[in-house]
Design a protein around this nucleic acid. Structure first.
Lengths: 338, 338
DNA sequence: CTGAAAGCGCTTACAG
DNA sequence: CTGAAAGCGCTTACAG
């Protein structure tokens, strides 16, 4: 058998000091230099690290909870990576909980984190329901909502509406007439409602109001299914706007399979700006949100809140238009700025 | 202010029982039906959930640590998702730690988890060094290594060698002569060494031994850089095998930019089988590992170990060849089975 | 600058 | 079937 697990009491005994002193050593309290050295030697020898979850009496647990809608999307991956790096560098532990696109599970995750005494919670929310608000209000700890609007508290959001309108205008400006839209369910307010509304408003400015709409989950398969659906309803569609790049991948698959040429027959645009999007043939025209930025801001904001520093109620993350070759200019004025 | 945080003692008092009884209620000990009901009512009213990290005295913490090399890859995402689902369904908490491709951080993460008293650890390791082995041996808890061989203990691995050889043979069989290989650093034993060895052995069976090799990290950019490098060394290369699909994406990018036609001028093959790979033009020929399966087996195995059930020392996960259109048959015999 | 004591929110023998 | 008591590995006033 290997060594027994060390406790703070063991370290204290081995270095000939009291365990409160060892505790202070770890938490930056007053310890004389020579005492510090004694403790340090023992710690290094035994590779000791305090049990972060036994700090029951501490005011601060130094752990931040992060709830994400899925572990399996480019966006979530970027946001998590960014949060994790920021917090790790500042000596915080990141506790990730996955909601698997299930609102009930999301609520449970949030409640669970609160009960675990984390110092703060970052919720990349599927949606913000009344239930959410109730939990957030009752929580005695800072909460930052990512990617969804949260009027009653602190949030960091993509500018979904304007981004949507940008693409809508772009498709309008480039002379399209018969437009399909593949969206996601409205439970996701940011993407399902605001982004869509932006797209529709942008199109409307160019007189396009009769939009063939299909809804789906966020999957590659969903994108395929809905493209088929749109094609059935309108085989003369000349542009398909997809709420995410992944959905656009599905559209490519089906369009190519059915012999439609992109962009000659049908233009396609997405939202996401994944690395892979620039690899498609033709390159996908898309709009990239700064997910790393969102994670960074979220982590920064939650730590500020914990320290009691003032923070903005709402921070809006940038987007960047990436012009690929998947949208064809079908009219005049394509060279002008949208 | 909202409600104060509830503790088990509060619940006990409110339901008029002792707190040991409440504890038993949660841990499946003997509690009379009528008592159960009293407790349940209070719990529901207050939305109470016990603090999982205060179970200091419990033999089992019911949390499993998972360390991953990155939060930002398709493979890691699939593995984590799969583990998380499996454990969640069985009432375990998943604690994810990210090593960001840094071996020291990986070691720290493992050590940290051990010190946090998790019931078991799943390590999707970058590599298994002597340091790793030492820590694993001293740990008093079950450890399962994912994706890397671990002769001294339990591991679940992709069949990297045979998968590599499969692709090597395939490229050989299809009549290629001048082959480039984009690999990853050797710190990743599974991919950097075994997969590569497989590829080289497969090629060697067809007399191809003079392989133009470039090494990189796992990034899209890395794939691009190395493709340029290979092209400089041998502009007449007729096939490039990439250790991962992401690297192959980089190869596509550069080849297309430089005016090489895939597969007419250069064939390309990868490993990964990402959704996006089938979207490239031409579709990427690749080999897909069952990452969900790996996560599932890993989670299943660790729970078995915790229960004391016997487990296999090594489990090998399946792979599946996905024939795209990115490899051209340049000789005879392409129709035969590899 | 340091240590003994009390306490954090749980679990676990143990006695009833 | 249940509760009082001791204990898990820490932190925190407090007294020195």
């Amino acid at each position: 058998m290997g060594k027994q697990k060390m406790t703070m009491a063991d370290i204290a005994e081995l270095s000939g000091v009291g365990k409160s002193t060892v505790s202070r050593y770890f938490n930056g309290g007053y310890v004389k230099q020579t005492t510090k050295e004694k403790i340090q030697k023992v710690i290094e020898e035994y590779n000791y690290e305090p049990n972060a979850f036994a700090r029951l009496k501490a005011k601060k647990s130094k752990v931040i909870g992060v709830v994400v809608p899925t572990l399996n999307s480019k966006i979530a991956s970027r946001v998590m990576t960014s949060i994790d790096r920021y917090l790790r560098d500042r000596d915080y532990t990141t506790l990730i909980k996955n909601s698997d696109h299930d609102i009930d599970l999301e609520l449970q995750n949030i409640q669970w984190l609160i009960n675990q005494n984390v110092d703060g919670i970052l919720v990349s929310a599927i949606t913000v329901t009344k239930e959410h608000k109730k939990i957030f209000e009752e929580a005695q700890i800072p909460v930052v909502v990512l990617a969804q609007d949260y009027e009653e508290g602190i949030s960091i959001i993509d500018d979904d509406y304007h981004a949507g309108r940008y693409i809508g205008r772009y498709i309008g400006k480039t002379g399209h007439k018969k437009v399909g839209y593949i969206g996601v369910y409205e439970t996701d307010e940011a993407v399902g409602i605001r982004r869509k509304q932006g797209v529709f408003d942008g199109l409307a400015e160019y007189g396009i109001t009769d939009i063939i709409t299909a809804k789906s989950d966020y999957s590659f398969i969903g994108g395929q299914k809905n493209t088929r659906e749109i094609l059935e309803k309108a085989e003369d569609v000349d542009a398909i706007i997809c709420a995410t790049d992944r959905l656009a991948f599905g559209a490519y698959k089906i369009l190519q399979k059915k012999g439609y040429k992109i962009p000659e027959d049908v233009s396609v645009a997405g939202f996401g700006g994944y690395d892979e999007s620039s690899l498609l043939t033709p390159e996908l025209t898309t709009l990239k949100f700064d997910s790393y930025g969102m994670g960074y801001l979220g982590a920064e904001t939650i730590l500020k809140m914990i320290k009691g520093d003032p923070v903005s109620k709402k921070q809006i993350v940038e987007y960047e238009f990436i012009e690929g070759k998947s949208v064809l200019c079908r009219g005049h004025g394509c060279l002008e700025k949208v």
